[in-house]
Amino acid sequence: MANIILNGAVVPNTWTLIESVEPLAAADVAEGSILPLSVWLAVRETLLENPALAGKRVGVWLAPSDEPGELVDDIAGLPLIAVQFPAFTDGRGYSIGRLLRERYGYKGEMRAIGDVGRDHLFNLFHCGFNAFEIKASQTPEHALEGLKAFSDGYQSSEQRKLPAYRRRPHAQTADSWAEISSPS
């Protein structure tokens, strides 16, 4: 099984992505599955209520057009939510990531899947993703470098709650610049 990036390290992937949106019976959901949102919503009650099935490790994945608010009741219990990027130029998943973390308070593993590579990791990380399944044309070890692209940024993000203007030394006004650049 291929490796993924989780919390900054390359580790084995212990989950299985169920791509098919065909309905499944709750009893057929295998341990460690990542279900499509629609499948999850159909089986969640049975899974959560049936003591025989409870305790099974199940995650959910969202397509870019899915509404993360539909998971609001499950946020506390889900160990993994994956967000799919069918093409890396489809940026909807970045907003989904931020909503899951910032609005719905999701604390578990949030994984970017699909067309995900080194050049997207930095922004994904700042939108709250802590796990990345890297596309086949790159290795996770190599892609990991992408997390180091920038040492800081202007905006408030999952990794840096305060935007730059709330962290900047207040004295750095034009006056202090004039002082530095005037010959004395």
Binding site: G91, R98, H126
Partner: peptide, 9 residues
């Protein structure tokens, strides 16, 4: 500049 959420609009 480098807004993490809005790079692929």
């Amino acid at each position: 500049t480098f807004h993490p959420e809005f790079t692929f609009l």
